[in-house]
Design a protein around this nucleic acid. Structure first.
Length: 236
DNA sequence: GCGACAG
DNA sequence: ATCTTGTCGC
């Protein structure tokens, strides 16, 4: 894969426009979902050493089955709209450590809810050809009306009358999370899957557990590699 | 030109 | 993203 670090903004915009041509939303033989992963990055302020975790959970039980941990160096700065160029390379290092790939991967950020339809989830999906969903804690793009206050209520997010995602209330009295397909999944299917990932916290289980695990990795409580937590019959 | 702006 | 205790509000 090419080194993103020295690229200019005009160059990464061109790359996003190229990757957009490879986006797909419904893969031919969609298999039933048995596993879903959460992917996240962590790092110390003022350091270019990144820590990545991909946690694999059973679906829809949402219990932790396995995870992979890897580090990487990134000098690409954080620029809204270009998060993938900063975080995807290290996530791919963790991805390669998984002996069996999960059915869906949830990324911390946007999917097609992005000016060029290339949020981090779409970026990761195009490179890996894996089904992905973007689940962001904050909105980047798209207009929407606030969903009502009840858990599981949601509202559509559009731009130029194009439906691109949903604001989903995952917990009462908490702000919603922003859901959009990344790659290989339709809008309604992405929303349905994420509803099943909601537990007792605002952040859906895949992302929440990935964040928890990657921080233990960063502070030295866990080490790089692949770890099987609980056997999944048929898998691992 | 101005404001907005994932992690 | 990370740092970091108490505190305001549902």
């Amino acid at each position: 894969m090419i080194d993103y670090n020295q690229l200019t903004v005009p160059e990464v915009i061109a790359l996003q426009k190229e990757m957009r041509k490879d986006l797909r939303f419904e893969i031919p033989d969609q298999q039933p979902i048995h596993t879903i992963a959460g992917a996240d990055i962590s790092y110390n302020k003022d350091s270019n050493l990144f820590y990545a975790a991909i946690v694999v959970l059973s679906y829809p039980q949402m219990t932790l089955k396995a995870y992979s941990l890897a580090t990487g160096i990134s000098d690409f700065p954080y620029i809204p709209g270009f998060l993938g160029f900063r975080e995807v390379p290290t996530l791919l290092e963790a991805w390669e450590l998984l002996p069996v790939k999960p059915d869906v991967v949830v990324l911390d950020g946007q999917g097609i809810l992005h000016p060029r339809r290339m949020g981090i989830a779409s970026h990761f999906g195009v490179l890996t050809h894996q089904a992905t969903i973007g689940c962001a804690k904050n909105s980047l793009y798209g207009k929407y009306k606030e969903p009502n206050g009840l858990k599981y209520s949601f509202s559509e997010m559009h731009e130029q009358s194009t439906l691109l995602g949903y604001a989903l209330r995952t917990k009462e009295n908490s702000k919603p999370v922003y859901i959009s397909p990344g790659y290989g999944l339709s809008l309604p299917k992405s929303l349905l899957i994420m509803k099943k990932c909601v537990g007792k916290y605002r952040i859906p289980e895949p992302t929440r557990l990935a964040h928890e695990v990657v921080n233990e990795f960063r502070i030295g409580k866990l080490k790089a590699g692949f770890k099987l937590v609980e056997q999944i019959p048929e898998l691992f």
